[in-house]
């Protein structure tokens, strides 16, 4: 069972919900929590435990072989991303612009651009009680999140049985990284705030999930602030609202200190219970 926690924009409480839900669930059961926001992974600030494994993750990029190259410039023509450039008598490769499409390499008449492994980031697997926490982090300067997200999901699928609950903390937005993080999950929880910004970004996120054909539901964070438009929108569009997490300054304070919230705030715990019940019933279906 794979659940993604996503949101149209950043800062809605996605990480707070993912980490707390995982910890709450782990009071009784095994759970996997994965931070797939590989550009800015923050879940790790809330989870401490024993490091189980650290994997360096690679992408494939072309490497110039000066000795066999005739400087014909085909590679530069074949690269749509300006990642390979001929500069006078040398060929330069820009790893962070490279999409690993292999075109320059395989179409090189003299095989002077073999593909080689290049580090793009690191996957960390931490064990904390019943939580298996997986975090991947792109190295600074690396721009493409999608391959690292894909490899992280692959790691999780090869490591844990199908029936173990897996919670994916997805990157924000509606572009390629979110699609990569959610395309193979069973269910998506969209976190939003009951404000005009929240509603606007929620609609974009819902459109994305409809396009991907993913079943989804909403959790409203900071409930009580703002207005009722998010609730009305969900009702009109038959989107289940799993929980309404009350607005609280205390929650923001605990978050800023990097602490898990639900143990201190019983009203938050109740909402987590509702989400858990919903998820477990999904599994039976």
């Amino acid at each position: 069972m794979k659940i993604a926690i996503a949101s149209g924009k950043g800062g809605t409480g996605k990480t707070t919900l993912s980490t707390n839900l995982a910890a709450f669930f782990a009071d009784k059961n095994q759970v996997v929590l994965a931070d797939l926001d590989v550009e800015e992974p923050n879940s790790g600030l809330f989870i401490t435990g024993k490091t189980e494994q650290i994997d360096v993750k690679y992408k494939m990029i072309p490497e110039w072989n000066e000795d066999t190259c005739t400087l014909c410039g085909k590679c530069q023509e074949n690269c749509n991303f300006h990642a390979v450039i001929r500069l006078g008598s040398q060929i330069l490769v820009f790893p962070e612009l490279c999409h690993s499409c292999y075109a320059c390499s395989e179409l090189c008449p003299t095989n002077s651009l073999p593909m080689v492994k290049q580090r793009m980031g690191e996957l960390k697997h931490i064990k904390s009680g019943k939580i298996d926490f997986i975090e991947s982090r792109l190295d600074i300067g690396q721009e493409q999140a999608v391959p690292l997200i894909g490899q992280t999901i692959h790691y999780i699928e090869s490591k844990f049985p199908k029936k173990t609950l897996k919670i994916f903390d997805a990157p924000p937005g509606t572009s390629c990284p979110v699609i990569e993080a959610t395309k193979d999950v069973d269910f998506v929880i969209l976190v939003t705030e009951p404000t005009p910004f929240g509603l606007h970004d929620l609609k974009l996120a819902v459109d994305t999930m409809v396009e991907l054909g993913k079943p989804h539901a909403v959790v409203i964070n900071r409930y009580g602030i703002g207005n009722n438009d998010v609730v009305d929108y969900c009702v009109e569009n038959n989107i289940p609202i799993l929980a309404k997490i009350p607005n609280s300054r205390k929650l923001a304070e605990l978050y800023s200190k990097g602490e898990l919230v639900y143990k201190e705030l019983p009203e938050f715990k109740e909402e987590l219970q509702k989400i858990e019940t919903y998820i477990l019933n999904l599994e039976i279906e």
Partner: peptide
């Protein structure tokens, strides 16, 4: 050009 304006 969407990306890679600098190198170009």
């Amino acid at each position: 050009e969407a990306h890679g304006a600098g190198p170009k």
